[in-house]
Amino acid sequence: MRRARLLVSKVDPWSVLKMAFLLSVALGIVTVVAAIVLWTVLDLTGIFNQVDSLLGTLAGSEGSGFELKKIASLGQVASFATIIAVVNVVLLTALSMLSAVLYNISATLVGGVGVTLTDD
């Protein structure tokens, strides 16, 4: 069995930027799909109607006329999830690039991270 001890002394910021962008886009797609699935499950189980009847009961016999589906429709939930996903893509990509630059600066001072590779 051979062993090689290596030192990660520099990380290419451009490759970190590309990888972080692709992974954050995948996370954004998962966020939008999860929000749509969650809304659909809540609608199919009747949670929206139960919340409406609960609020009608709490408001009194005259009724409040409040409908949760009008405030949180599927289109609005999907739009909000898309906005959150886009903001996350920008923030995660920028933070990953900044982390790579900060790692390179600190690696010049400390020497980097040691990695041991083995061959089985």
Rank of each mutant, 00 (worst) to 15 (best):
S73R: 13
S99D: 05
L6V: 13
I47E: 14
M19N: 04
L44N: 03
T93H: 13
V101W: 09
I105N: 15
L95H: 00
L102A: 15
L55M: 11
T57I: 05
L42K: 04
T45V: 08
T93N: 11
V32N: 10
N104C: 08
G63M: 03
I83V: 09
K70W: 06
L17I: 06
A81N: 02
S53V: 15
A85W: 01
V110T: 14
W39K: 00
T31Y: 04
A94H: 00
L38I: 04
E62A: 12
L102Y: 10
S99P: 00
A35Q: 05
A78S: 09
D43W: 07
L95V: 11
S99R: 10
V90M: 03
S9C: 05
L38T: 10
A20E: 10
A4H: 05
A81Q: 01
L38E: 05
S24Q: 12
L91Q: 05
D120H: 13
V115C: 02
L44M: 08
V89T: 07
N88I: 06
N49T: 14
V86S: 11
T40Y: 06
W14G: 07
L6K: 08
T116W: 01
S73L: 04
G75Y: 10
G112L: 00
A34D: 06
G112R: 01
V87K: 02
N104Q: 13
L102G: 13
A100W: 06
V30F: 11
N49Y: 08
V30T: 13
V115D: 01
L55I: 15
S9V: 04
V110P: 05
E67R: 12
A78D: 02
V87F: 06
A81Y: 03
K18L: 14
T45P: 00
E62H: 09
K18S: 08
V30M: 10
V90W: 01
L6M: 09
S24P: 07
S15C: 03
I84G: 01
G112A: 00
A26T: 10
T31P: 13
F80M: 07
L54S: 14
F48Q: 04
F80S: 07
A4P: 00
T57E: 09
L102H: 09
I29Y: 05
Y103V: 06
G56P: 15
D120W: 08
G114R: 14
S64H: 03
K10E: 11
M19R: 10
S73T: 13
S64F: 07
L54C: 08
L92T: 02
W14L: 11
L109D: 07
R2Y: 02
R3T: 01
L92P: 00
M97V: 11
R5F: 02
